[in-house]
Amino acid sequence: MSTRGTDSSPATGPLHAVRLGPRSATVVALASLAGLAMFLWPLLLTPDPASFGTRSDAPFVFMAVLPVLVLVVLAEISEGGMDAKALAMLGVLSAVNAALRPLGTGVAGIEVVFFVLVLAGRVYGPGFGFVLGCTSLFASGMLTAGVGPWLPFQMLCAAWIGLGAGLLPRRVTGRREIAMLAAYGVVVAYVFGMLMNLYFWPFVAGVDTTAGSLAYVPGAPVWDNLERFVVYTLVTSTAGWDTGRAVTNAVAIVVLGPALLATFRRAARRASFGARPTFGRSVRRRDPATSGYVTLPD
């Protein structure tokens, strides 16, 4: 929150373009918990013994509930108003992400959305990362006809990626920071692929009680289903799509990361998020970072 020129480490100081107060943080945590359960339901479901064998309507209920959940969280984060600069920055970076997304499709696994998301989440903080994940995928869905039942799930996943990037340890700097972000990019690529697969697995492979198939067996022990799912995800995506995504993320972060981090930080300093004009007794001090005067509260 500091705009003080005396701040010795403006590059690494905590910066929150979108503040997550205690109330917003609670809401994000609760919604993430419910959202995660909606991704992991095939592993968690224990069907009622009385109605065993009947189809579960749970996934269809979740399809209806998750969009509402995402909207409620977004409303809560922006509750109390959002800085115009943060909002404009969100819009611009969402446009960049939406433009990057179609670059990859067609070439197996080249997915370039996440690296900007990771870098922006790192610089602008967890709240901004969360919202950017949502708006990026939503804007890209609108531009490339990708609005479907899968969109809220993708949005929530991307939001977690941005949030996590903002929560990474702040003290790491320089080359180690880039290494950390690249490693995070790799992990995130696989986790995103796994979660999206897990959500779609029962729809593609089916719900079945026959042994020896890749289908999801409701009520089977968690490990059995997990083993089947791991085979499914290894066969269908890990080798191709997910690895491609991980490699693109890591390479993009290593090659472009330092330059983009510097660009983002420069913009953040110029925007001086969270600085509120105050009236009354104050001190004027020259701020070397913004090369202008900043009015500091007394």
Partner: peptide, 12 residues
């Protein structure tokens, strides 16, 4: 959702 909606409009 005014703020978030505006951000998406800006993006588009």
């Amino acid at each position: 959702l005014y703020e978030v909606g505006t951000a998406v409009v800006v993006a588009l």
